[in-house]
């Protein structure tokens, strides 16, 4: 006997993501979901953003990591509140974990909540956290074939940050190819080339962030 269901598999996560989204809309908080491979520079970029925009934006951070809270400590050292979620092996954050972290963070008092997802370019993109916007980061040493290999991740991004451009002269990295491959799956993505180490290119990212959070001067 066959039973036809056609039922969405991750529906429980989606229901919870809707709750989170409603929360962010109600409180006028911009929530960003940062996705990248481990080591691309998410924590470095978020910490630098907090320091550079400390007079303009109140940022709170939700840190997802398989183990340890070292990233949350770095964020606190940069001057922002941070909640660490240890996923204990899971390769992505779930909407439910974020729901709990929102409460612990007093997210309604922030302008922007940044979620640093678990370092992984594939799995996190399957789990809606209720964010307003996805930021996908790719760093130069990872190579220029990532957008072709993981098109789904790049297709869902509002912003793509290409980080560690300070290393471009030392590493073979076909920037034109990367830009073209991202455009194929996501013609509207805002793509910024940055170095979280030297600060190069971050102005454009800050400009976008302030505008998206409704905090730009103009």
């Amino acid at each position: 006997m066959k039973v036809s269901l056609n039922q969405k598999i991750l529906s429980r996560n989606e229901e919870c993501a809707q709750k989170n989204k409603a929360f962010f809309v109600e409180h006028g908080v911009l929530c960003l979901n940062f996705i990248s491979s481990p080591g691309s520079g998410k924590t470095t970029t978020i910490a630098r953003t907090i320091r550079d925009l400390k007079d303009k934006l109140k940022i709170g951070v939700i840190e997802g990591d398989i183990k340890t809270d070292t990233d949350a400590q770095k964020i606190r050292a940069a001057g922002a509140d941070a909640i660490q979620i240890e996923t204990r092996g899971a390769c992505h954050l779930s909407a439910e974990q974020v729901y709990n972290a929102i409460k612990a963070l007093d997210a309604e008092t922030k302008d922007v909540v940044i979620i640093e997802n678990v370092g992984n370019l594939v799995c996190p993109s399957a789990f809606d956290l209720g964010e307003n916007s996805r930021v996908v980061m790719l760093s130069v040493p990872e190579g220029d074939d990532k957008p072709v290999k993981y098109p789904g991740t790049f297709a869902g991004a509002e912003v793509v940050l290409i980080n560690k451009i300070d290393l471009m002269e030392h590493i073979e990295f076909n920037l034109e190819r990367v830009l073209a491959d991202i455009r194929v799956v996501n013609p509207n993505a805002k793509i910024f080339q940055v170095s979280a180490a030297t600060g190069e290119g971050l102005d454009q990212w800050y400009e976008w962030l302030l505008k998206r959070a409704g905090r730009s001067d103009d």
Binding site: M1, K2, V3, S4, L5, N6, K8, I9, G152, A155
Partner: peptide, 21 residues
Amino acid sequence: SGEFDFEPDAPLLLEEIEFEE
């Protein structure tokens, strides 16, 4: 042409279960 729009990607679905008669 390289100009196109994507159709929505298929969601993760549990389509069907077969049970013993």
